[in-house]
């Protein structure tokens, strides 16, 4: 496999009982790329993420990360090798404070969670505060995460994912529930992370301006089948993609 390829799926398929939700998806993401998978609701975008991250067992095909096969690995093992994700519906620790949420993820990344006798509050202070600052959550550090606004929960989930220092970040509708200003801030952050540390990013999104504003590569899923792929401009011109998702004119 080409060294530039960070994620590759080979005939990836998933069925739930008799329902085929993903069929023979051959996908490739290059290192340092920002890419998006788009498609109508039920197209299989989240299922694709679920298969890559071990959330669901694969029914057929294989997943490769940096050339290594990771098909059906345990979720924590996949996270450990450098793939993290943010969910469509924010998936945070609602009873912990924002600070504790981020610190927990940092301590896990630093492999310090089997420490029994050092108070957690003494550890990873600077890293936690810095990441809260980066994600614009400093003002909420003592707030119980469960009562944050939907947009701030999304930001927090992004912070949790970043705390793991991933090589590949999967974002499932990262701006859902955010105001236009928050959307812009979040996607700017994503772009900055991609540029500054070369983080590879794959996201799903419904907001056309976000998709065409930030993705370098687009893939269109329709009823579990990858129907089009290319640069945003190529996809915009693709008849099949237009029919399935984009409408007549953009």
């Amino acid at each position: 496999m080409n060294d530039d390829v960070i994620l590759k799926t080979d005939h990836l398929s998933k069925s739930f009982f008799k329902y085929q939700v993903l069929t023979d998806v051959n996908y490739q993401l290059n290192r340092g790329q920002i890419a998006a998978i788009i498609g109508p609701n039920g197209a299989g975008k989240s299922t694709f993420f679920n298969l890559v991250t071990g959330y669901h067992a694969v029914s057929g095909g294989n997943v490769y990360f940096r050339g290594k096969e990771i098909t059906n690995w345990a979720r924590h093992k996949i996270a450990r090798i450098g793939i993290t994700r943010a969910f469509q519906v924010s998936n945070i620790y609602p009873k912990l404070t924002t600070y504790e949420n981020v610190r927990q993820s940092i301590l896990a990344q630093q492999k310090r969670t089997l420490n029994f006798f050092t108070p957690a509050e003494r550890l990873a202070k600077n890293e936690t505060l810095s990441l809260l600052e980066t994600t614009g959550l400093s003002g909420f550090r003592n707030t119980e995460a469960g009562i944050l606004s939907q947009g701030d929960k999304k930001k927090l989930e992004l912070a949790l994912a970043l705390a793991s220092k991933p090589d590949l970040l999967l974002l499932d509708e990262p701006t859902a529930g955010m105001s236009s200003e928050e959307t812009h801030e979040t996607m700017q952050l994503v772009k900055r992370l991609n540029k500054d540390i070369g983080l590879s990013i794959l996201f799903t999104e419904h907001d056309i301006s976000v998709i065409f504003g930030y993705a370098q590569k687009l893939s269109v899923l329709h009823q579990g089948v990858l129907v089009a792929e290319g640069t945003p401009e190529e996809v915009r011109q693709n008849k099949e993609a237009q029919a399935c998702y984009l409408g007549e004119e953009i």
Partner: peptide, 29 residues
């Protein structure tokens, strides 16, 4: 008390709060 306030103790709270997320930050729950 030390155990509950340690990173291990917080990992337990994290598992209580959201087992799924805990797996996705790389912890073998």
């Amino acid at each position: 008390y030390f155990i509950t306030e340690s990173p291990f103790g917080y990992t337990m709270k994290a598992i209580r709060d959201n087992t799924e997320r805990t797996e996705f930050i790389g912890i073998n729950v």
